[in-house]
């Protein structure tokens, strides 16, 4: 693996950054810590200060979670500096996650619809 790394570095220099600096790792780590504090804070605010409507609370929690995921996937999992094919596969995984969520939610949303409303009497 190390061999391959230097190899790529020597021959394709400038084509693509094959390296994430230590400073970036620390900054990403700091950002993750901030987001974690935000998660706890959002929970605390909802619990003790203001009664948020469910959809808003979920949206806030999900946004923070997505931000964390993106940082980890891009930097810690090296997707940002990976080949185009790896990026396609990483994105594909999320497309599949969307398929799972959308179709499952399709059932939940339509669950209450009366079958009588359909074409049959």
């Amino acid at each position: 693996m190390a061999e391959q790394h230097t190899h790529a570095h020597a021959h394709h220099h400038g084509e693509k950054h094959t390296h994430i600096s230590r400073g970036t790792y620390y900054r990403v780590f700091a950002a993750l810590m901030v987001l974690m504090v935000l998660t706890v804070a959002a929970w605390w605010v909802e619990k003790n200060l203001i009664e948020l409507p469910g959809w808003l609370a979920v949206t806030i929690a999900m946004s923070i979670a997505i931000a964390k995921t993106v940082l980890i996937v891009l930097y810690f999992m090296h997707v940002k500096i990976s080949s185009r094919m790896t990026q396609v596969y990483a994105a594909g995984a999320f497309v599949w996650l969307i398929i799972l969520f959308v179709i499952t939610m399709g059932d939940y949303v339509a669950r209450g619809w009366p079958p009588q409303a359909g074409p049959l009497p």
């Binding site: 179709i103 399709g106 059932d107 939940y108 339509a110 359909g118």
Partner: peptide, 14 residues
């Protein structure tokens, strides 16, 4: 996948 769930309480539209 929902074709395994026709007679569960899955929505008939799904």
């Amino acid at each position: 996948w929902g074709h395994h769930m026709f007679v569960s309480s899955q929505s008939v539209y799904a």
